[in-house]
Design a protein around this nucleic acid. Structure first.
Lengths: 163, 163
DNA sequence: TGCTCTATATATAAAGT
DNA sequence: TACTTTATATATAGAGC
């Protein structure tokens, strides 16, 4: 797929690895998007980059709210799938908060924001804690509130992290 | 990438959609594998096929035990990442058990196996239940036992579902 | 890392089995 | 659904900015 055929083994050169990663990641996410659209499927993708920042993907043309909508209309037999999504996304949100805090820590003049971020994390963690026992959450109204939180939080994170 | 350029929209014809899905899924997983190997990254991939059987992918050349190894050597700051993986995989294991049961239900002469599968599910679910509060699990020895369960269970599922 | 360029490798559409 | 074949679309290697 290029000037030369390359051997399928880990690239040792750091710079080359990073450049290959960003190139191939782009193509890979495009493929994910195409697969999701063409075949009307839900895809969730977690990639840890060489620089270890986790990348979460879900198809843009099938936004999270629509996935959640689909999940909420699932039969009882499929409920387990719903649980996967919810727990997965909630953990991811928590991860993102931790990244915010780590970023803030590197800026001495941002202590107020750091404090705010910590408070936010504490609040969100308490929501998460309830979700660590999702089988106990059986009130549909409560589920809806949780989903709203989820959608809101993700949109907020998108603002913070552009890509 | 074919005789004709195709429009990027959901394929309505069922048969065509299924065939495209299996073709593109193959290519997509290959890309995931290549990305994982070339750039030495961890990739976790959940795809719901048009026939709704979930497909979990993690790079073959970076087997789960190695991912777990890496996770267990993570710093405290990165512990959240570990939690994502564990909860994610545990839910997936549970999903697989549910599929076993559903498959067995379609065969009248397999009631014994059905009973066995149900018992297995109950046992595994009790392990899972502990994991729904992963923050309470802080004993390292217990974590190791959990990881062993995880690796064992996944190898077992590979035997049941060849692909 | 992100872009461009071009040659080449690879994926896949369509049709058939 | 899984193969094959062939033509063609697409991804990307390598180099430079």
């Amino acid at each position: 797929m290029g000037r030369k055929k390359i051997e399928l083994k880990t690239i040792e050169c750091r710079k080359e690895k990073s450049s290959k990663f960003s190139k191939r990641k782009k193509g890979f996410l495009k493929k994910a998007e195409e697969l999701a659209v063409l075949c009307n499927t839900d895809i969730v993708l977690l990639v840890f980059s060489p620089t270890s920042k986790p990348i979460l993907f879900y198809s843009h043309s099938r936004p999270l709210s629509r996935i959640l909508e689909k999940l909420s209309s699932m039969s009882e037999d499929e409920r387990e799938e719903r649980l996967i999504f919810r727990v997965f996304f909630y953990y991811y949100i928590k991860l993102y908060f931790i990244y915010i805090i780590n970023m803030k820590l590197q800026e001495d003049d941002k202590l107020t924001e750091l404090r705010e971020a910590r408070e936010l994390l504490d609040r969100k963690t308490s929501i998460l804690r309830k979700w660590q026992e999702p089988e106990r959450v059986d009130d549909l109204a409560q589920l809806t509130i949780m989903d709203d939180h989820l959608v809101f939080n993700l949109s907020m994170f998108k603002k913070v992290f552009r890509s």
